[in-house]
Amino acid sequence: MSIDALIQIKSLEFSYPNDPGFALNIPSLSIEKSDRVFLEGPSGCGKTSILNLMTGLMLPQAGTIDVLGSDITQLSAVQRDRFRADHFGIIFQLFNLIPYLSVIENIILPCTFSRSKRKKALQRSVPLGDEARRLCQGLDIAEELMQRPVQQLSIGQQQRVAIARALIGQPEIIVADEATSALDDERKSQFMELLIRECDRHQSALIFVSHDRQLKSQFASSYQLSELNTESASVTA
């Protein structure tokens, strides 16, 4: 057991109570506190379930999940939510943003739910809006876009705003869930470049989950989900 482990999973068993066809069984998985990790797996192999478990949105039936040295399966529901708010920045595939908030408001939204993110963001710039602007500048989001309703942004622009929101308050771990699948090839490589650069700059570890093997080359380490799951034979699509 490495002290430098970012996430360490042991003898994890998980299934949905209303879906007996699906089961996740991971005897051991250790993600080092290196920097960039690629989790590869076709859709339906349990990617979403693993993310739910890692971020404390769901609890396994058995096993332990250590994140940054604490076993999140031992935390209460409220503590898990706070833990996720404090230590994770999350980017989805699509529609990351709250439609009725402006770009800036979307970016500072995580600070509503995490005091530590708020504190860290305010250490960099005051008020929070300025920190959001600083992040936007790093992500090539033009000043004029910041005032616009988010629906008027292109998908590529929306995904960049999502990176900014994930980065605010310097969470230790950035999780990107199929974050590039809605982008064309050119945008995809631009997005990856920005994401990796910004994660490095903010010293956040990146866990990138995708079925897209092309992206694997940009990561130091990678894991094949279907190989980790000993129950993968019973996985249904």
Binding site: V78, D81, R84, I90, L97, I98, P110, F113
Partner: peptide, 16 residues
């Protein structure tokens, strides 16, 4: 639903 799910992943507790 999506909005609530986003808030949830950002750390909002169901009680919030």
């Amino acid at each position: 639903q999506r909005e609530l799910a986003i808030l949830r992943t950002l750390g909002a507790h169901p009680s919030q």
